[in-house]
């Protein structure tokens, strides 16, 4: 592999990793406030993909869109993905998890419920939209925008990384600088005392799901950009992003970003060096190795600080 090939692969990995990072934040925030592994988050991601397809199918993009039109289509897709992702996440918490919290159900019940909700949601999508891939309407011509060190960066890659950066920055501000963020961090550390400070735990939990859902939904749309969406599309990216959250130290937002980028890059290099069949082997081998030596993940000692 030549040096310029390595650059290509690195860019590929970082683009993929930035998506994993955005999805991983959804897992890590929910884990922070509820100690819940929300496996249904992969279906929130899937819903975002369908949200984008539905919205764009309704507006029917022009055949040869101007730059302005393309930008509008992309923004529309992002908004639709966010709205559907946020709505599914909101409903999921209300319908599936809140009743369990009311009854003080054991952890295992939450986990089984999460898996059940995941099955329910992706099969529902399969029933509603068909069990076959659906192409994302073309929003722009995916040409090379610029070249760094001989590596061509495409519009799609630019959009994905740009949107991911904006979302990651927004989450960082929300978690560390806003009232909702201080509520999230307080609930993550000690829910009982947080409520003594006047924090409405139900409200914070619900909004945490919505925040994670907005991000997951946008990631779903971005993932489907210039590709296709399918009712099962959530599974592998979801599991990988979950692994990224664990790798970074679950409960820790910056850890999720680090874990996501790392797994994206490892995945890209694994595919390049061996073959596509090895795609997930490399990333998960890294996960296992890191957890053997750092069971709390890379930044795992700061769980609850969520920063």
């Amino acid at each position: 592999m030549s040096l310029s090939d390595s650059w290509d692969v690195l860019v590929l990995g970082l683009v993929l990793g930035s998506l994993y990072a955005v999805i991983a934040i959804g897992y890590t925030l929910v884990y922070g406030v509820l100690q819940l592994l929300n496996f249904a988050h992969s279906e929130v991601f899937m819903a975002g993909g369908f949200g984008g397809v539905i919205a764009l199918t309704i507006v029917e993009p022009a055949v040869d869109p101007s730059g302005m039109q393309s930008a509008v289509y992309v923004l529309l897709g992002i908004c639709a993905g966010a709205i559907l992702g946020g709505t599914i996440a909101f409903g999921l918490e209300k319908a599936a998890y809140r009743p369990l919290r009311r009854r003080n159900a054991p952890r295992l019940v939450f986990l089984i419920t999460a898996i059940g909700a995941s099955f329910f949601l992706y099969n529902l999508a399969g029933k509603l939209f068909g069990r076959y891939p659906i192409a994302m309407p073309t929003m722009y011509e995916n040409k090379t925008v610029f070249t760094v060190f001989g590596t061509r960066v495409s519009i799609t890659q630019l959009i994905i990384v740009g949107a991911a950066l904006v979302m990651l920055a927004a989450v960082d501000v929300i978690v560390n600088r806003t009232k909702l963020g201080s509520g999230i961090r307080a609930v993550a550390q000690d829910p009982e005392v947080a409520s003594l400070m006047g924090v409405d735990i139900d409200k914070v939990v619900s909004r945490t799901f919505v925040l994670g859902g907005l991000l997951g939904g946008v990631a779903g749309f971005l993932f489907g950009t210039n590709l296709q969406v399918e009712y099962t599309m959530g599974f592998l990216p979801g599991i990988t992003a979950f692994a990224a959250a664990v790798l970074g130290g679950i409960g820790n937002v910056r850890g999720a970003v680090l874990g996501g980028l790392l797994l994206g890059v490892v995945e890209a290099f694994t595919v390049e060096i061996w073959s596509d069949a090895w795609r997930y082997v490399g990333a998960f081998a890294v996960l296992v190795l890191v957890l053997m030596f750092r069971p709390t993940g890379l930044l795992g000692e700061r769980v609850g600080r969520a920063a």
Partner: peptide, 19 residues
């Protein structure tokens, strides 16, 4: 006591004024 162990003193005090 149950202070928020991973927050700073100032952040803890601000949590007290959350309401």
């Amino acid at each position: 006591r149950r202070v928020f162990a991973r927050m700073t003193i100032l952040e803890n005090l601000k949590m007290g004024a959350y309401r």
